[in-house]
Design a protein around this nucleic acid. Structure first.
Lengths: 333, 333
DNA sequence: CGCAACATTGAAAACGCTTTCATATCAAAG
DNA sequence: CTTTGATATGAAAGCGTTTTCAATGTTGCG
């Protein structure tokens, strides 16, 4: 009892018009006599006709779906962006094919290829390591690609971000102003552009401005997990750090809880400032001070930018920088 | 300079074979002489041919993509399921079209329709309120639908869940065993089947078993947000509750922090147990005791079930119940 | 060597729509 | 009435595959 599908042809026959006319009314083409339109609409309603988007995609070469590559949906930072992306996408009648990449280069390339095979009209990429291979794929893609909350040292792709260098510098300066001399820099892999090309740069800048020598013993490269942060405490203390800038909220929560559990009081004995201003910052105690980012908007703006690109509209600026801020909560003095 | 796409026809011409043969090698059909296969493969490689999935979808009536309806990606409970779904989907060569519904019936119906228009091969639905309209749409869908971590009182759809009634009953019994007599039931909308048909039932059962009278003054219906939980404190105290079962982790974190901030000590003065065992339970202090659920697995199993359904394999049991547990952390005595 | 049986291949018809181009229709103008 | 310039409509050619069916090759065996 396979359900029978009604096609545009059925509608045409029943309404005694041509497929072309049905297509016109379905697509809102104005060149249809109102009476005809009405007649067709009635038949469509009666037969419960629903256009087949696949056929449409083949004929029109537009699928109204965009691919979204995300490191891990489970990471609030990225899922917040994703939410912004999806909302705007829906607003513009696009759908999202979402795939987790785990920031794994091989997987990313593979995913990118299947997205292209599926003829997505555009792609939003999140992930902070754009390998050469990936960059090549981006180039060969006929669908525009925009990076959201992610940077590429080559700056080849349109992207939406905040000014990470300035934001981190400001955050670290804040820590310095509180009298800290030994400030740890805790982040994910240094291979990621966002860490070595932006955050670390901001960190160094703040130190330099304050006349503090850079000491790579204070740089902790780990992964973006709660556990990783939690187990960092002994090392942090051993290095003599009295404060830390952390590149991810979950990681920061781990760091903070690890400290607290070890009897180090935050913020009186150790200050922590984090980067992404996700809801996690408010959940933990003490609440975490953070660089603030318009997470939802980064996604939303990236998607909006993508719609323009897909539409061949000229965009004034391919690299958009959204404003950041510093939110003082209770993990800093 | 529109990028030129190479089609199966180009490959056929260059390899001096028919499209049919190319199609065969692309699809791994064994009826091709090894020599021919090799020749075709070389041409494919040389021309960098990539099959157009849309055309393929039209011709084969299979798109290898499934639709996923999620209340909000930003909610860790659901994003954890989504992660399981995506991983298994990828394993079976499917892609995911992900859309947020905000549990809004109208939006859900609309989304469902566009998914069907896009000819998805199957659908995974998350959201705990299956309206009649939605149920109708499910029925008319020729793509199989499975509910993940979500229940429908009608039990019409295949689904993957835990035994909510038993789990909640056990959680509440635990609270009772600690000497609590006035236990609050805090959840989202009572219109959701999971709340009124399952959790509340479990709650009542536990009370009854312990000979405690049910008092609807202890039932707090709110929304699943941190803020909502946080602002519940005065009401909770006013009702004289000394413990609470909460239906969502973020909400529970709010409840707990609200209590703590108001000077009520958890767990000595007030115990809290939550439902979803997401990472949040470990982030907050005190860590939250929770019903444990195999979140990732719920998604994974749902997707696996869906693959079977899409494949017309006979499945022994449409309604799968995964095991739950109780994890004692520090928000209960 | 001849033929059955099977392995390979190709031609062409779908798949369900959009879009171009030509034809028809029609109201207003001459 | 004819002519003209829209305005409406239809025919048919794609879009890039899969798939069916028939045709052709090939092999083994008597």
């Amino acid at each position: 009892m396979e359900k029978q599908t009604v096609t545009i042809y059925d509608v045409a026959r029943e309404a005694a018009v041509s497929m072309a006319t049905v297509s016109r009314v379905v697509n809102g083409n104005p060149n249809v006599k109102p009476a005809t339109r009405k007649k067709v609409l009635e038949v469509i309603d009666r037969l419960d006709y629903r256009p087949n988007a696949v056929a449409r995609g083949l004929a029109s070469k537009k699928t109204t779906t965009v691919g979204v590559i995300i490191p891990d949906v489970t990471n609030i930072y990225f899922s917040s962006l994703a939410r912004g992306i999806d909302d705007i996408a829906m607003m513009y009648k696009y759908n999202i094919i979402l795939t987790n990449s785990d920031e794994n280069g091989g997987k990313e390339v593979q995913v990118l290829n299947t997205l292209m095979a599926k003829q997505v009209d555009g792609i939003i990429f999140m992930g902070n390591q754009v390998t050469d291979e990936l960059r090549e794929e981006f180039k060969r893609s006929k669908a525009p690609v925009v990076l959201a909350g992610s940077v590429d040292s080559e700056k080849a792709q349109p992207s939406v971000n905040i000014d990470y260098v300035a934001a981190v510098a400001e955050a670290v300066k804040n820590l310095i102003d509180h009298g800290n001399q030994k400030i740890a820099f805790v982040s994910g892999s240094m291979e990621q552009a966002i860490n070595h090309d932006y955050r670390l740069k901001g960190y160094k800048k703040a130190l330099k401005d304050a006349g503090i020598a850079y000491d790579d013993k204070l740089v902790f490269e780990t992964d973006y997990t709660y556990k990783a942060g939690q187990s960092l405490e002994p090392a942090l203390s051993a290095a003599g750090a009295t404060a830390a800038f952390v590149g991810d909220d979950e990681l920061a929560a781990g760091v903070m809880n690890g400290l607290t559990d070890a009897g180090v009081d935050v913020p009186s004995e150790f200050e922590v400032i984090t980067s992404n201003d996700t809801k996690l910052t408010e959940l933990v105690r003490p609440k975490m001070s953070s660089i603030t980012q318009p997470l939802y908007d980064i996604g939303a703006v990236a998607m909006r930018l993508l719609t323009k690109l897909m539409n061949n509209e000229t965009v004034e600026e391919n690299t958009v920088i959204l404003p950041y801020g510093l939110m003082k909560r209770s993990s800093t003095k």
